[in-house]
Write a protein that binds this DNA or RNA. Structure first.
Lengths: 229, 229
DNA sequence: CGATACGTTGATTGACTTCAACTAAGGTGG
DNA sequence: CCACCTTAGTTGAAGTCAATCAACGTATCG
């Protein structure tokens, strides 16, 4: 699946700087609210400032000259964004949901270092995923990663189960995991049939067997050994 | 190709702490000299200190439980090592050549930040390579990367051409690029036949057409368009 | 109500892997 | 010095996992 970088005008139109409510309830003019599918900054342009994600999901991606896209990281609440980008942005940042961001005006060194370290750790783990994991292993890893960042209390029959809103589309997941939409979709179907996850809407996912999912993600168990016909 | 993590004993035997000559010529007891194929630190063990590579090549790698190995980065002279590893090492560091390392005892914040930023930048570019590039593109990218880190003056007929010592074996390259030994070998042969590189020994490589190589690496041109029969 | 985007599923293809055979270089020990 | 072994690299043939191509269902939206 190919995606093309948005024209620069889309970036200059942002951020919107609308006054919004912080968790503490005070109006704060510097908090940014982004609608889904808007770019926060663009690969190749002057370096963007540092942000902290308050709410929602932001994708960091790189594109090759011919349009092939690789999503480097999915960034959820609490994590930092815009670090380690050099003089110019090497990545495009795009909101995958309504997102609330807080600019970090004067980051203290330890905050910055922690953010960078986390970035390195995640990038390294992702490289291992991209270089050496099979498609079902990648999808299981992705589900666990996103569950960790976006969990929310499950309702009704699913009470007690881990449930989360899967902000990225199948296409986004494909670009994150180095796969195609079709392969991602097939893996979701297989994991669902095997009883490891459940979803009725494609974007609300419940973890039924997180440990088994973790086994698959780590390559300790193959999905075939779990098929429930 | 599968590789298994070395037993811990191999790591405890290191570093050797032999006195060596620095570029300035003074004896320095804290500089480490590693023979090829020795581990500097191991994935899962207590965090290693920071080093700067003075000479030689060090590979940073992660292994999955079943032994699949992914090399995260190849680190040459001037670059830092052991950063962003958290409380325990997430990676194994192994010398791929005779290597001289200098421990960095008390890194100043800007040095640390610069090292981390470089690590993030490289890891992100590598993720794009692993997720979205074809085998010939990966190999071309790798050759250019290593040439940048390990260039040396070419002799004889190759005078004026970029020439470098390819420390990693085909197997190491495979683990770095998410491929197999055979595929890496085939890509080298194709690049050689196309007249972009040359080598008589598999580990001494000369760049004959760096720009064409860069085009392939970026995905702007496919190797088929360059075949010289 | 068509138009568009997303998701799923099936059939087919293809790039890379796997398996296998072989060459060359380096080390060891009789 | 040479038989013997091991390791790295190359090359060919066969196999496979994921990509591509294609069709269809569904939800959203002007």
């Amino acid at each position: 699946m190919l995606h093309f970088t948005l024209p620069a005008a889309d970036a200059r139109a942002l951020p919107s700087r609308l006054p919004t409510e912080t968790p503490a309830g005070r109006a704060c003019a510097t908090v940014h609210r982004l609608p889904p599918r808007t770019a926060l900054f663009l690969q190749g342009y002057a370096r963007a400032p540092l942000y902290r994600v308050i709410e929602g999901c932001v994708a960091l991606s790189q594109s090759l000259p011919d349009g092939r896209r690789q999503i480097i990281d999915m960034i959820g609440p609490g994590r930092m964004l815009g670090i380690g980008i050099g003089e110019f942005n090497r990545c495009t940042a795009e909101a995958l949901s309504f997102a609330t961001l807080e600019p970090i005006v004067d980051p203290d060194p330890s905050t910055l270092e922690h953010g960078l370290e986390q970035m390195v750790l995640r990038a390294q783990a992702h490289a291992t995923l991209l270089g050496r994991k099979t498609a079902p292993e990648r999808v299981a890893s992705a589900i666990l990663d996103l569950a960790g960042q976006f969990v929310r209390p499950a309702r009704g029959a699913k009470r007690g189960k881990l449930c989360f809103n899967l902000h990225p589309t199948r296409g986004d997941l494909a670009d994150w995991l180095g796969l195609t939409v079709e392969t991602v979709s097939r893996c979701f179907t297989r994991l669902k049939r095997a009883g490891l996850i459940d979803f009725t809407h494609p974007e609300i996912v419940t973890l039924l067997q997180p440990e088994a999912l973790a086994d698959i993600a780590a390559g300790n168990r193959s999905i075939e050994t779990l098929q429930i016909p």
